[in-house]
């Protein structure tokens, strides 16, 4: 499994979880929930125009045991529309506060609340059969320290579904998070996609479940 994770990184296929499309159509709302070994997070964003969306995000960092609450701006930097494929380049920036999750009896030097921000760049390319995406992310978590992570995904659709049918994807994810005890990781997941709803269910190499959901309004 470590070999697979390394392979992904060498290939430069760093991807984002369920957030590969952080900008939808003008006036559209999107809800995104991400749950994996690193985080539990919820994001609601509103698309302002074809290139920008504005969102509110709550993210619990499982490794650091703190919660980020803040706002983020997503920008579609460039989209390449081709007859049988689409590729996107996105940038995200967010700012907010981080708060520890310690109970009042625990005393640690890093407890309290602090300002935080993050930067994220991601890219994806997909046809109706193949999918790949990549992301690089940096978090400044104030007193809780800096973190960065890189993720990559490869996916294949076992069948091609038309509009309104259930679309199924089999995906593999590799990740590199230098600050984690286990720097390299990998996961396998299934993506189910129907109309405005997208569900991802998977498991990583440590046996941790992965559950992501997106809904577009």
């Amino acid at each position: 499994m470590r070999f697979i994770a390394t392979l992904f990184i060498v290939m430069g296929c760093f991807s984002t979880p369920a957030q590969a499309r952080p900008v939808s159509y003008p006036g559209g709302w999107t809800l995104i929930f991400v749950n994996d070994v690193n985080e539990n997070s919820a994001l609601a964003h509103y698309t302002l125009d074809s290139q920008h969306s504005l969102g509110l995000r709550v993210r619990y960092d499982r490794e650091g045991d703190f919660t980020f609450t803040g706002a983020q701006i997503n920008r579609l930097v460039k989209r390449w529309n081709k007859p049988n494929s689409q590729a996107n380049l996105y940038a995200r920036i967010g700012a907010g506060v981080v708060t520890d999750n310690l109970d009042s009896a625990e005393m640690r030097p890093d407890r309290g609340t602090d300002a935080a921000f993050f930067l994220n760049a991601s890219a994806d390319w997909e046809t109706r059969r193949y999918f790949t995406s990549a992301t690089a992310q940096y978090w400044n978590n104030g007193r809780f320290g800096d973190t960065s992570n890189f993720k990559g995904r490869l996916g294949v659709a076992p069948y091609i579904a038309n509009t309104g049918s259930i679309h199924t994807w089999i995906m593999a994810e590799g990740r590199y998070r230098p600050q984690n005890q286990n720097e390299l990781g990998a996961a396998i997941l299934l993506r189910f996609f129907k109309g405005p709803a997208l569900l991802e269910v998977g498991v990583d190499d440590e046996g941790e479940p992965l559950l992501n959901y997106i809904h577009r309004f």
């Binding site: 499309r21 939808s24 159509y25 003008p26 006036g27 559209g28 989209r79 390449w80 529309n81 081709k82 007859p83 494929s85 689409q86 997909e126 046809t127 109706r128 509009t163 309104g164 679309h167 996609f193 129907k194 109309g195 405005p196 997208l198 577009r216």
Partner: peptide
């Protein structure tokens, strides 16, 4: 006829717009 159609999110964006 359109370029870039790969998933249901694409059709939703076009329908809504």
């Amino acid at each position: 006829e359109l370029n870039g159609l790969v998933c249901d999110f694409c059709s939703i964006a076009l329908n809504k717009t």
